[in-house]
């Protein structure tokens, strides 16, 4: 449903992506792995419409994506949980969630979807009047995922949701992601936490220096030389 083909992108004269090709199929969880600076976040910014690619193509449900304005990407069913969560800290939990349903399409059924989010994250219902910046990191991550779900996405893109969270919390968030996926939402997951991500994902891609260095099923990738080189250092070879 999401196809990225030969994507190139750069900041100024500094090229970050040089021909990335990948795909997310309906119902899949796809992990996108790679060391810092490999271009993972840049790829997400391209998908979200925040950065115009220099070359290549992106298609979403058969229609081109790359030239769309950022705010229309949500309307078409792609919701992004950005790196560092980027919540509206001076607003309440409920206001943040309501903003998630800002896109016109997402306004239908907003109330029932809010109930759904509260069912997944019951603690958010208790905290719904609190300002987001007063919440703990884990709760903030729940708000960030909840905000994206409020857009009624068919594809959920997450950029390092485990960043700064305790291992137990990561486990429970990843469990919830699996549940969300079973509800019919495809997921593209960018992670540093290789084991957790590959355990969750159906398939994975390794990004290195702006190119896809390896791809395959989670368990296969885990044993792949690229993964070991990227994450365990040259000595592990």
């Amino acid at each position: 449903m999401l196809e990225v083909e030969g994507l190139e992108a750069s900041y100024g004269s500094f090229r970050v992506l040089s021909g990335v090709t990948l795909e997310v199929r309906p119902g899949e969880i796809v992990a996108l792995l790679g060391p810092n600076g490999a271009g993972k976040t840049t790829l997400i910014r391209c998908i979200a419409g925040l950065l115009r690619p220099r070359a290549g193509a992106m298609r979403w449900e058969g229609r081109p994506l790359g030239q769309a304005e950022a705010h229309t990407v949500v309307e078409r069913g792609v919701a992004v949980v950005p790196e560092g969560r980027r919540l509206f800290g001076s607003m309440s939990v409920e206001e943040n969630l309501a903003l998630g349903a800002f896109a016109p399409r997402a306004r239908r059924g907003e109330a029932s979807r809010l109930e759904g989010v509260y069912a997944i994250f019951p603690v958010l219902r208790e905290r719904r009047r609190q300002l987001v910046r007063a919440l703990s990191g884990g709760q903030q991550q729940m708000v960030a995922i909840g905000r994206a779900l409020m857009a009624d996405p068919r594809l959920l893109v997450l950029d390092e949701p485990s960043l700064g969270l305790a291992p137990r919390l990561v486990e429970s968030i990843f469990g919830l992601l699996r549940e969300i996926n079973r509800g019919g939402v495809s997921i593209l997951l960018v992670e540093q936490n290789v084991h957790a991500a590959l355990a969750l994902a159906h398939r994975g891609y390794i990004l290195e220096a702006g190119r896809v260095a390896a791809e395959g099923q989670g368990s296969v990738l885990l044993n792949d030389a690229h993964v070991r080189r990227a994450y365990l250092g040259p000595l592990a070879r």
């Binding site: 979200a48 419409g49 925040l50 304005e69 950022a70 705010h71 229309t72 949500v74 309307e75 919701a79 992004v80 950005p82 980027r86 919540l87 509206f88 800290g89 001076s90 607003m91 206001e95 309501a98 903003l99 998630g100 800002f102 896109a103 997402a106 905000r147 857009a151």
Partner: peptide, 20 residues
């Protein structure tokens, strides 16, 4: 609400579908 969100973080506002 959209105006306040834009004031706080316009990129995040774009990501929630607000025409900034």
């Amino acid at each position: 609400r959209a105006i306040r969100a834009t004031a706080e973080d316009w990129e995040a506002a774009l990501l929630t579908g607000i025409d900034v």
